[in-house]
Amino acid sequence: MTPFTYAKPESVAQAVRSGAGHQSDAKSSALDFFAGGTDMVQLMQERVRNPEHVVDITGLPQLDRIEVGEQSTRLGALVRMSDAASHPHIVEVFPVVAEALLASASPQVRNLATLGGNLLQRTRCGYFRDVVTPCNKRIPGSGCPAIDGQNRGLAILGTSQRCIATYAGDFANALMVLDASVLIAGSAGLRTVALADLHRQPGDTPHLETHLQPGELIVAIELPHLAVGLRSHYLKVRDRTSFAFALASVAVGLDMASDGTVRDARIAVGGVATTPWRLPRVEQALRGHKLDAELCRAASALASADAVPHGQNAFKVTLLERVVARGLEETGGLA
């Protein structure tokens, strides 16, 4: 790890004033926020991030709370993944969140990792994390060896000519089906951004991964209670049963009438796209119809309509459809 200086601000204002950032290219921000450190230490040990200055935000007051309000539940950015996953209200009302968290990483990592840091975790693309190779995300303009190279784990949705890296997180996919938003503190005060608008597709600037400005800090995640009553579920397919990133995963939220008719469907997928990714066409195909195995299969066939495979990851096209179908069946009580 490259040496750095360290500060532990005691207020959000102080943290924001530090100007610390979270870009992915090796050059920009020399100042990084540090929460659970589970991704930061990996990146620093492998010299992918070499901040000159680290701003430890774990001392910020009140950000480690889960507050259940009338209209919404607010998850503080410093809540640890393990604590959110075992919180009775989350388990009962937002099972998709608890399941996605428990399907992530290991018990040890979940005890350290925070929810805010989780949303901003970097891709697991092997070239991004290997500093001796080119990578447009790490060194803008240097090229993307993954497009014609080792890309078995990489994305088939939302890719560009410059980058096909997968958004690796699970939690954000669950939040997508709950219409969650993120509360952000910056130099101009607080703002709220829909989770769906937090991450950027790579386009021509794969090193810009989110719409956060330098100094901006995620302070909380807001889950509206509109989604209460939704049946929800997270299904994740990996190379091994546990402790691995997704090859493909699906977060499902279904609002069903008593006769099995789908009133509303929300579906987001992970492991296959460059950002947390909703599937509006699949959702549309489900609405107003009675959920059965046939409908699940027909609707999920639309999941890969926009997919662009790149060789090694071509198997994900079929896998994605099957994971969506299976996730729907499990959520709807058919499997």
């Binding site: 207020s11 530090s18 101009a188």
Partner: peptide, 27 residues
């Protein structure tokens, strides 16, 4: 900076100039 009672309502003073202000007590 005085300890704040709630992160929700606090207004955050703008950063001065282009260079990020590194807190003086860094170690």
């Amino acid at each position: 900076v005085a300890p704040e009672s709630s992160y929700g309502e606090e207004s955050v003073p703008p950063t001065s100039g282009a260079a990020p202000a590194v807190e003086p007590h860094t170690i």
